[in-house]
Design a binder for these strands. Sequence first.
DNA 1: CGACGTGGGTTCAATGAACGAACTGACCGT
DNA 2: ACGGTCAGTTCGTTCATTGAACCCACGTCG
Lengths: 175, 175
Amino acid sequence: MALGKDYATQECSIARALEIVGERWTLLVIRDALYGVRRYNDFLVHLGIPRAVLAARLQALTAEGILEKRRYQQSPPRDEYVPTERGIALWPTLRSLGRWGREQFDQEQVRVFRHAACGTELGSYGECPACGTIVPVPDVVMEPGPGADPDPADPVSRALLRPKRLLTPLEPDPV
Amino acid sequence: MALGKDYATQECSIARALEIVGERWTLLVIRDALYGVRRYNDFLVHLGIPRAVLAARLQALTAEGILEKRRYQQSPPRDEYVPTERGIALWPTLRSLGRWGREQFDQEQVRVFRHAACGTELGSYGECPACGTIVPVPDVVMEPGPGADPDPADPVSRALLRPKRLLTPLEPDPV
DNA sequence: CGACGTGGGTTCAATGAACGAACTGACCGT
DNA sequence: ACGGTCAGTTCGTTCATTGAACCCACGTCG
């Protein structure tokens, strides 16, 4: 979508946004990145995305300044992908999209998001109803809700079952 | 995406939502519907979407209960597509996506949204900063911003230049 | 030393979706 | 009878996605 045909006639910021994050898988990659997934292989197993598509998306997102590619060890060379400010700014969009999906189609909540400072569950737009403020993304705690699978197959899903702050990297499975 | 391959491994309401509105063009069709576009031909000229794709999207959105197909004249039989509650519930998502696109990539505002009651421009999540409430979608007025093309080619874009409430149908060009 | 494993990719053939142009069909006005 | 509008469907071509296979640099185990 970003390549080749685009939403040519649209002079609209929604269309512009969709040219960048509207392709298949892209928003799910960003969601995972906000949840703390950082490595190629973790995205791969958690999303079930084809390798070639993942490589293309990570490259495109890096080029757009939504993720940043960072070398975290020299030998063997290993990179991780972390959300930039621009990527973090998508949190309210993802939050409201997820909320729409759950309210309209799912019953059970798979993940619950709370304000770390006071434990209150976030409202529709990422605000804290108790404090009356928009909660900065690093101050959001994610924990499994009643609809979560208690024993998922892949290690990334298992790591995401432990309550953690958004953006903090995944801890490996301590079995 | 809705048909065939889906985001199988994801037990996540964001993934569920994207299975429904994540296909190319879908969110733009819903955006136009919220702006007051209702007829096949108006979507066609305003979006520049291939006819076959538009027909498929309208059918899918109707099947998902996001748009409702309504006969508005008997002879010749003509239908219009209007957003349901479920479709209207996507407004905060579209609003925050558009805001992200403009803040991160565009400078100029193409469209401005105000609270009809007080004229205040809406905040990021569709709330009225003056009144402190979430503005119901029918009470939002849309008008062209500084970045809007003052003399667009297609009649639908021209009709959208006149300030109007969301959801109200397009008035034809009075030239 | 050589075999195997791991992380992070690239290549390739087959399939599916999107594109645009042409066609259909019901109706209206002249 | 003729042309025009609206709302599609059909169809051949192009483009994107998929899944499987392959690659390579390194680290580790025996």
